[in-house]
Design a protein around this nucleic acid. Structure first.
Lengths: 227, 227
DNA sequence: CCGTTGTTCCACCCGTGGGTCCAGGTGCGG
DNA sequence: CCGCACCTGGACCCACGGGTGGAACAACGG
């Protein structure tokens, strides 16, 4: 890994200045922010936008590397603006800077294509670093943002894939899978080319082994087991 | 990237040098990496580790700000080392640097407490930036890593949240939630302090509106709707 | 003021589900 | 060869689920 090689096509090897657009509806936030960013010698604040439409206009007008995007903005909000930006101008990296760090906002912004998510207690260095990272194809998240993002993943991903005892026969597992798809016994019987009586037998054995009470309970277990 | 323009923090607020540990089992990777990092004047490579145990030993020996961690290492691997590090030394930030960017590795590393995840085609500037971000409490992910992380979130979180028509009354939704928990009608009736007949009515209306056939089908829909 | 919507309840019917008991056929390993 | 596990099937019973129709009451809004 040499420090000269870069898989990222558009980035320059010369210290090119990053063209940044600052988007926030409050001038009291937008102006000082733009001024502070301009202090960094590798950052050019090429535009300041008060809503999503102005961001899109700025991106259409001239080349932009990074957009520092607020979420709460009139007309077109930050989420929608990010979505359109990443569609129409894939080269533009969006870094979200907002006071809201709830799960929905984070997921929506990142799903829309944002390459960074900072809360407004981030310092100047944090913001500058995120801008540079975004321009280089990386993604910077605030600590709490990453924690939240990860929490939502873990509750949905690591939890399942368990349950179900070991002494369940392949056929029983097969039947359970079909129950999990909501099929009645007759349909299961037809699908497995066996009689409905046999299906019942499998189900009864299955219920006894796995401690399943209902058919409804079976559906839950089947889904939890990933069938 | 040019190494003459080191455009960063050291001027203003943080004159302290970051104490970094480089962990990789291959000396051919570890040594050059440490040497390259030491070129940054705000980085002190205080130790080089060949496995997880050496990382833990280094952290116990003296103050460490950031660990640049490989995942594949003998004895104690990077995941386990990260887990123990963040438990025993919460002040230490771990940045993973590995060739593997599969979902399992990413999730395992981040769940273990890693504050960054880079693949080995990251350049020197990318790594340095990630180290600084991690030390500042931020988290840096490679683009592909963020995409993968987000993909696993979306398939598990945003996808469900759908289905269910709009004309469903609150009471019916409540009943559906209890069906989703596998409760029989009698139990639902007792839980809602209504008669079993009323539960049936709600269920019938519900089924008609939402196009649900079975009780089993209802369980699936309830789970899919996140009830 | 009256229609609509939501919630509550009843009665009736019958199909499916769930439990039980039993039993024949097959393939495997002691 | 004989058990054993598994898949297969049939018979019976009855409780629960699901469908239909009807009805009463409160709250809300045109």
């Amino acid at each position: 890994m040499s420090d000269t090689t870069r898989h990222d096509a558009r980035s320059a090897d010369v210290p090119r200045r990053l063209r940044v657009v600052v988007a926030d509806d409050q001038a009291a936030v937008r102006e000082p922010l733009a001024a502070v960013l301009a202090l960094s010698e590798d950052i050019d604040v090429v535009a300041a936008a008060a809503d999503g439409d102005e961001v899109l206009a700025a991106a259409a007008a001239g080349p932009v590397d990074v957009v520092l995007m607020d979420l709460r903005m009139p007309r077109t909000d930050g989420i929608e603006a990010t979505r359109r930006l990443t569609e129409e101008h894939p080269g533009v990296a969006v870094v979200v800077l907002t006071t809201f760090a709830d799960d929905d906002s984070i997921l929506a912004a990142l799903s829309a294509g944002a390459r960074g998510y900072l809360t407004k207690n981030a310092g100047r260095q944090d913001i500058v670093r995120a801008i540079r990272a975004a321009a280089a194809g990386q993604s910077v998240l605030d600590r709490e943002v990453q924690d939240r993002l990860l929490a939502t993943v873990r509750t949905r991903t690591t939890a399942p894939r368990q349950s179900l005892p070991e002494d369940i026969t392949p056929r029983e597992r097969e039947v359970l899978a079909l129950i999990g798809q909501g099929l009645p016994n007759r349909a299961i019987a037809e699908k497995l080319f066996i009689s409905e009586a046999t299906v019942k037998t499998h189900i009864n054995n299955l219920f006894a082994k796995a401690g399943i009470r209902d058919r409804a309970d079976a559906v839950r277990r089947a889904l939890a087991a990933g069938l």
